[in-house]
Design a protein around this nucleic acid. Structure first.
Lengths: 313, 313
DNA sequence: CGCATTATGCTGATCATGAGCATAACTGGG
DNA sequence: CCCAGTTATGCTCATGATCAGCATAATGCG
């Protein structure tokens, strides 16, 4: 084997598989929810996409719908072990319909992503932990900053990320929020390198390496994407009611939507069509069942469609 | 050196450096404009971003403003030479202010990106080559497709990508257009692998490997980004007139904008402030000079600002 | 001084969005 | 059988953003 590169470079794929079941946005995890699934960099397939798809379908048994590359991490300090060995992690986001059986024998599990980011779920209003725990500690962190320009910069970042001082909560800033908490030393991942002291950490389950950061990146991407491209479709069963569709979007966005406006938007876009059937399983008046319009499935909304992310009921 | 991975994996960084000079969007190229600059995967820096920044600044002498990861390519057929050697190319987009001297001694040059994508420049109306050359050949390509569902799919993709049948031209679909032309065998990169026959190719300079694809990805990203984040700032000098700013946006977007609406949008967002000076170099009535508001430079527009991409004058 | 040129202010039409009222159609309990 | 509770669905109104122009203000130039 020729020694072309100075260091040993290894590459792996990290898969962020997302599904929505029981109105919860879920990610596929391994080892009792502590880790995202990752696999070797297969050379038997033509492209990374194909490699990922083959690997995921073999591992989980789920067909993989939409996929998208997320981010490539290659920072030196990713692995604490060996400085000369470099790990390149190429992460992908994948959407799938079924999140039933856990797949293969490994201890895989679909976990709600709000388990790792409890402050991101605003469906029942602002999570109390933000005002009680996060904001005070971030304020303490900014106040402790000596240089005034840096302090002001941090103040502003905190205000924007968490919607302080009259600014609105922006559900897309998942990564910025995580990075702030990381910088402020409020998540366990940030201090694991220095010492083992995990007191004063925020709720929200940590993950090793960059995995929680990858998850944050994926959530942010997905939350942005549902507004201008009909990717929710990839997560829905063949037929569904409009409220079910709305609940799925709400699960992803972490926000409640205005019902009537949601329907208006959906049908103004001609994204769906009635199947002709209705279901009475919803409780009240029977709801019409819809399916996605096949030709829409292809490319449609690149021209610019939006899903409304609005205020609570 | 331990033989951990089966194949030899090599990694490189590819830099897509963008500047706007003389109302042209330009990219830094090497070898007489035939190639994007790429460098080794440096292990001496902490992160990929830092690695890229150091390398670019050393190579070109330009300070690097905003940077963003674009895409990671690792397809087997990237390099035709050796199947066992795998090349991972991590590409970055970087914005810089100055595109004056070419930098170091290598034959680097700033080339208008429309040299590689002549069909993307709509500032003087629709490029004639679209109706004359591109659309007919794409139609021939779709017509030659045997299976009806595949044919219809391709028809629809062509219509969306090139704004046919009443659909609007969407300037963000740079990559989709390039990929269509690639699939249809209308760009030299597509057939280089099979034979050397380059007759019937479209105008627009090709690049080896994925370089033109990377450029397309970067243009698309930038065109999308200027609408909701004030990245144009990174490309402008310290002070400028509103028309200069508009021209820069038009260069990137490849479209003309409505002047009055552009100014209204800019100042409704409070992105800029007057310097107090005026310039008479613009021809008619002297124009006020503006600078970007420093605090805006930080993070401001994440909350959602937009640059208008509108119709011709 | 009049003309060409660019800068800049302002207005009306149109469209998207946010919020809510009102009604329809079912279920289950008295 | 009627009533309360629940969800589905149609429609309106206010507001704000965007599109497309008209009108006026300052310059330089012949």
């Amino acid at each position: 084997m020729p020694a072309v590169s100075v260091d040993t470079i290894e590459a792996e794929l990290i898969a962020l598989l997302v599904a929505v079941t029981d109105n919860e946005p879920r990610v596929l995890t391994i080892r009792d929810g502590s880790l995202l699934p990752s696999g070797p960099f297969e050379t038997t397939h033509r492209s990374l996409q194909a490699s990922l798809r083959a690997w995921v379908e073999q591992q989980t048994g789920h067909p993989l719908g939409y996929t998208e590359q997320l981010y490539t991490f290659a920072d030196r300090d990713r692995s604490t072990e060996d400085a000369a060995r470099r790990f390149i992690s190429i992460s992908y986001l994948g959407l799938t319909r079924q999140a039933g059986a856990s797949g293969c024998g490994h201890d895989t599990a679909w976990r709600s992503w709000y388990r790792y980011f409890p402050w991101e779920d605003w469906r029942d209003g602002a999570p109390p932990m933000i005002a009680k725990a996060i904001v005070p500690r971030l304020r303490a962190w900014t106040s402790a900053t000596v240089e005034p320009p840096r302090r002001r910069e941090r103040q502003q970042r905190v205000q924007i990320a968490f919607g302080l001082r009259g600014l609105p909560w922006n559900e897309e800033l998942v990564l910025q929020r995580y990075e702030l908490l990381f910088e402020a030393g409020l998540v366990p991942e940030a201090i694991r390198r220095s010492n083992g002291d995990e007191t004063g950490m925020l709720p929200g389950e940590p993950m090793p390496h960059d995995h929680r950061r990858i998850l944050a990146t994926g959530i942010a991407r997905l939350r942005a994407k549902i507004k201008y491209r009909p990717v929710v479709f990839e997560l829905m069963p063949a037929s569904f009611t409009l409220l079910q569709l709305q609940r799925a979007v709400e699960a992803l966005a972490g926000q409640r939507l205005h019902k009537q406006n949601f329907r208006r938007l959906i049908d103004s876009q001609a994204l769906v069509e009635e199947t002709g059937d209705v279901t009475t399983e919803t409780g009240g008046r029977p709801a019409k069942l819809f399916r996605f319009r096949p030709q829409v499935l292809l490319e449609r909304a690149v021209a610019g469609s939006k899903l409304p992310v609005a205020r609570p009921d």
